[in-house]
Computed example of a mutant assay.
Amino acid sequence: MTPVPPEKMPRHIAIVMDGNRRWAKARFLPKIEGHRRGVKAVRRTVEACLDLRVPTLTLYTFSSENWNRPEEEVSSLMNLLAIHLRKEMDELVEEGVRFRALGRIQELPGNIQSLVRELEEKTRNNTRLDFNIALNYGGRIELVDAARALAREVAAGTLDPEEIDEVRLSARLTTAGQVDPDLLIRTGGEQRISNFLLWQMAYTEMVFLPIFWPEFDTAHLEQAIREYAGRDRRFGAAR
Results as ranks from 00 to 15, higher is better:
215 E>R: 09
201 M>E: 02
15 I>F: 10
18 D>F: 11
115 L>W: 01
146 A>N: 08
53 R>C: 14
94 E>I: 05
107 E>Y: 12
46 V>D: 00
171 A>R: 15
40 K>W: 01
33 E>F: 04
64 S>T: 12
101 A>Y: 10
94 E>R: 15
174 T>P: 00
18 D>L: 13
3 P>M: 00
70 P>K: 05
72 E>R: 14
51 D>I: 02
91 E>N: 13
67 W>T: 11
223 Q>C: 05
136 N>Q: 01
79 N>T: 13
227 E>S: 00
234 R>M: 00
20 N>P: 12
121 E>Y: 13
223 Q>W: 09
132 N>T: 04
63 S>C: 10
166 E>W: 01
12 H>L: 11
178 Q>P: 01
190 E>V: 08
25 K>F: 11
67 W>N: 06
164 I>V: 11
162 E>F: 09
198 L>G: 03
172 R>D: 08
222 E>I: 14
11 R>Y: 02
228 Y>H: 14
171 A>W: 01
16 V>C: 10
85 L>I: 10
155 A>D: 11
73 E>L: 13
231 R>W: 13
117 R>D: 04
230 G>V: 14
191 Q>H: 06
57 L>M: 02
12 H>M: 08
43 R>E: 14
195 N>G: 10
59 L>Q: 10
156 A>P: 02
199 W>H: 00
122 K>S: 14
87 K>S: 09
205 E>I: 04
48 A>V: 12
36 R>L: 12
35 H>S: 02
40 K>M: 06
193 I>N: 07
44 R>W: 03
219 A>Y: 05
173 L>Y: 00
28 F>P: 01
14 A>G: 12
66 N>H: 08
237 A>Y: 05
71 E>T: 15
37 R>F: 02
70 P>G: 03
97 V>Y: 05
58 T>D: 05
198 L>V: 15
185 I>F: 01
76 S>W: 00
164 I>A: 04
164 I>E: 03
201 M>T: 13
163 E>M: 14
200 Q>T: 08
92 L>S: 02
225 I>N: 02
180 D>V: 04
